[in-house]
Amino acid sequence: MLDIKNIHKHFKGNEVLKGIDLSIEKGEVVAILGPSGSGKTTFLRCLNLLEQPDQGALHFTDGSLDINFAEKITKAKELQLRRRSSMVFQQYNLFPHRTALENVMEGPVVVQKKSVAEVRERALKLLAKVGLQDKADLYPSQLSGGQQQRVGIARALAVEPDLILLDEPTSALDPEWVGEVLQVLKMLAAEGWTMIIVTHEMQFAKDVADTIVFMDGGVVVEKNNAKDFFDRPQQERTKQFLMQTKAVEFEDYCI
């Protein structure tokens, strides 16, 4: 569905991404793992131009859209890319002055210019899908963190994207709310949504992802199917990361 080639990104002379390549098939779930500062979030933000890569390219394999980041990107191409992808953020990024329902309706009404009646019906169905049909008229301040993030997921689905980008969707949640969000993501994976998820939830990545990408220092260190990645890692840096992760999980269990 999508080929990503040689993505580079600098911030104030610091090279954060050093040539990232990734191919994604329709319906594939890709989990991106790695230590803090490895470039995971920057890479994700580059995919819908929240950050402008310095070089590299995106190619939709159906021939509908090609973007060369070394060239000036037209507004039309920028809008076309953003209409084909949705982002779910760490901190929810809901409009505080809009209800849950209005947050879900915002994109299709404002960006896609669809009718309010049509969008309202679908938005209510999406809130029901994420278990929030009774919260439609509540504002973000009246919702728990897990509920806000589920509204964020419903909002991402509302524009019917080809690709959903999720940036550590559980990292800002209290432990009691993590499970409810992960259950929704498991449901979306089972339904065949194409997703790239930056996450630190190892068991979730193992259970749900088709492909694991491990990044460190702005490069892809290892890429493999989930089973082989966790059971038979190939690179020493990957093995070290997984051992450290297991040690942290054990310490958390013992507290």
Rank of each mutant, 00 (worst) to 15 (best):
180 E>T: 15
30 V>G: 06
246 K>F: 11
21 D>F: 05
113 K>E: 10
169 P>Y: 07
178 V>M: 06
80 Q>Y: 05
198 V>S: 11
220 V>C: 07
47 L>G: 06
91 Q>P: 10
148 Q>M: 14
227 K>V: 15
6 N>G: 02
151 V>T: 05
221 V>Y: 05
139 Y>I: 02
38 S>G: 11
28 E>K: 10
39 G>S: 04
4 I>K: 01
20 I>F: 04
165 L>Y: 08
88 V>K: 12
140 P>K: 13
153 I>M: 08
131 G>H: 01
10 H>V: 09
127 L>F: 00
237 R>D: 04
38 S>A: 14
221 V>W: 03
172 A>N: 14
245 T>G: 15
46 C>R: 04
184 V>N: 11
196 I>F: 12
222 E>C: 03
212 I>H: 10
29 V>D: 12
9 K>N: 11
13 G>K: 09
180 E>G: 12
229 F>R: 09
245 T>H: 15
71 E>D: 13
56 G>Y: 00
160 E>D: 11
247 A>N: 14
55 Q>T: 09
143 L>R: 07
13 G>N: 09
82 R>L: 00
220 V>N: 07
66 D>M: 07
66 D>F: 09
181 V>S: 11
229 F>A: 07
85 S>T: 08
77 K>W: 09
89 F>L: 14
254 C>E: 15
17 L>W: 04
246 K>M: 15
5 K>W: 00
153 I>L: 03
216 D>L: 09
95 F>M: 14
204 F>N: 11
217 G>P: 01
237 R>N: 03
252 D>C: 14
189 A>V: 02
63 G>S: 02
188 L>H: 09
19 G>P: 09
242 L>F: 11
16 V>S: 08
12 K>I: 12
146 G>K: 12
167 D>T: 14
173 L>E: 10
212 I>Q: 11
122 R>D: 08
194 T>A: 04
231 D>G: 11
226 A>G: 07
187 M>P: 02
84 R>L: 04
153 I>G: 06
167 D>N: 12
80 Q>R: 08
31 A>H: 13
212 I>F: 10
215 M>G: 05
75 K>I: 13
58 L>W: 02
4 I>R: 00
46 C>M: 04
36 S>C: 05
158 A>K: 02
85 S>M: 03
232 R>M: 10
56 G>E: 01
223 K>C: 07
200 H>N: 13
42 T>G: 06
14 N>E: 13
232 R>H: 15
21 D>K: 05
110 V>Q: 15
85 S>R: 03
176 E>Q: 10
123 A>W: 00
17 L>A: 07
19 G>W: 07
214 F>P: 13
46 C>W: 04
37 G>H: 05
108 P>T: 03
136 A>G: 01
244 Q>C: 11
7 I>Y: 00
109 V>E: 13
167 D>V: 12
254 C>W: 14
124 L>I: 08
148 Q>W: 07
111 V>N: 13
174 D>V: 01
187 M>E: 12
223 K>F: 02
31 A>W: 12
